[in-house]
Design a protein around this nucleic acid. Structure first.
Lengths: 194, 194, 194, 194
DNA sequence: GATGAATGAGTCTTCATTCAT
DNA sequence: TATGAATGAAGACTCATTCAT
């Protein structure tokens, strides 16, 4: 119960906690309401239905997540620095909110097709940040001209996502942010010795 | 469970089809039984419960999938050729069985934590193939000595997985195998101009 | 409950409209409040509960309905003329307020036993008008002496009610009042050729 | 629990009892299942949904009801005898099953528009019986030639329905069948002395 | 082995009503 | 008087699993 927050945020925060602790399928609306300190019916004054809680949760949290990344990357000079900062901020934010990490990496994936598509719509902004960094890198002459933008985007996002998921599944027992540099280096330089 | 009996395979194949066509949450046991041409109760002579169908499905299909990759990669000389072959065979097999592609990339992710952990156990063999290729590459002197094995594994697997998922979500409308070379190059050389 | 205040009538009129337009089961208190231009809670300053709105609605509208019939019938001379006038005024009033017709003939019947009993209490006055017309007819010697008052009352009311209900269910597409004469003749003379 | 009946009939009979005893709105599916001696889920092996129980109940019972009326009326010679027999059989059948009487006269009217339309479809057959008797009466020369078929049908059905409803609401405390003759006479001869 | 009819636990959502302001 | 945000009870339906045959 977080009495000073507006109910909308109270409910979303409760949902993150409940889902992280109980898993997606054991997160009944009544459980979320109880954690939020409101009646079951109150949920429906702020959200259309259960799915809408999840979509809103993702939009709210991911919105802030992406905004932070946008802010932090623009302040850097070169594309490779921007990429490093993107990875650091990505890792940092999920480290700071380990409930959110569990929810985004594991639990929300159990949602159905409809919800996943809404989630992808939210992720689009993030992918555009990646795209623009890659574009800058090419313009700056530090990234290859012949890069396939889509493949690159998939490599970067796929790598970060898989890295975070592994870390979450290992119960977040190591320092993710420390690996940002190495991950960036891998993405920029690849496996090759040169 | 008698793995060599036709009915066992009948049911698994029916499950793949039903899940690909109806989605994970609309794939009731009764629907799978009907497609397999057996009674609902018969399912339980071959599988402990519904989750066991899914785990077995994944083990069966992924077992063959990984075996093929093991075979095809050992026949290649150098680590970078092996990596290329791994990607080609990975893409090729999912292209060949589009029902399976849908099931592994989209539908099976909607399963709960327990099931995902069993799925990860199956994937371990695949990750070991990646590890050994990377190890060979280092020994051969074509990959960097200071590579973090785990991060590399996550980059390679994450990239391939994200690439296939995107392709499936775009309804498999383009030729995935054609992109194997470019993906391999990205992984080996990174984004950098050199 | 202050019957002379405008708000009381506002709410009842809103209820008639809302029920006629949305049907009994889709007529939430909040919808009635909105249509009446008051807050949900205000409803409860004028009515004990939802059922009370409906009972009051029926009392209010039926009170006027019956009063009109009482007035119009007393001015006629003989019982058969009074009966004709009763039918004409009955049909006429429901034709004049088609929302009310829908509500009384179709929607209010969906209420539960309790409400129906209260509705019947309101109807009692109407049945008494019928009774007295029949009594007069007998006294005048134009109706049979051996008539069973209750059965007659049921025939007259049942016939009018069924006639109006059919007309409402046919979307009030024909002129009900025009049929008053024929209905009266049927009731007075029956089916027989003489 | 009526173990020797097929489940379909068991459930319908249970529904009649439960609705008659508890009223339409307090007749939960679980209550019907319990009375029928089956599990809640079993209901849904035999009926699409709750409304389908009610529609089927009406079709089943009313089907038999009307069939009986059809049989009994055809065996009579003249139209007025047929009408008398129709009334007798109508009253007799509802007297014989007082639960059914409550359900058809009071509780089923509380259903929504959709259900009522399905109920009306069932009643159509009954109205056709009335129509044909009236037609015969006209052909036989004992009923007036200028009768409005629809109005007559509404008078007959409205009168019977109202009569039965009143009897049910008076807790069926008097002998309904005994009044059949008087009701028939009223319909045939009307109120008039001759 | 094979069947499939029967089971029954589990949950989202609505909406009449309240009460602090 | 008037408000309207908050309450919380209540119920139809699904579907994985069982077991008598």
């Amino acid at each position: 119960m977080k009495k000073n927050k507006p109910k909308y945020k109270q409910i979303i925060d409760a949902a993150v906690e409940v889902i992280a602790e109980n898993g997606y399928h054991s997160s009944q609306v009544s459980k979320i309401a109880k954690k939020a300190g409101v009646a079951d019916g109150t949920i429906y004054l702020y959200f259309k239905n259960k799915e809408d809680i999840l979509v809103s949760l993702f939009q709210e949290k991911m919105g802030m997540f992406i905004e932070k990344i946008e802010q932090e990357t623009t302040s850097r000079q070169s594309a490779d620095e921007k990429l490093l900062r993107l990875i650091e901020v990505h890792f940092d934010q999920l480290t700071a909110d380990h409930h959110l990490a569990i929810v985004t990496q594991l639990e929300l994936r159990q949602s159905n097709k409809d919800l996943r598509q809404k989630i992808n719509a939210v992720l689009k902004r993030y992918l555009e940040v990646i795209d623009s960094i890659v574009g800058e890198g090419i313009d700056e002459g530090i990234f290859r001209k012949d890069l396939d933008k889509r493949l690159v985007r998939q490599m970067i996002f796929g790598t970060l996502d898989e890295t975070v998921t592994n870390w979450v599944m290992k119960d977040q027992r190591y320092d993710l942010v420390k690996q940002a540099g190495e991950v960036q280096k891998l993405l920029v330089s690849g496996l090759s010795v040169r």
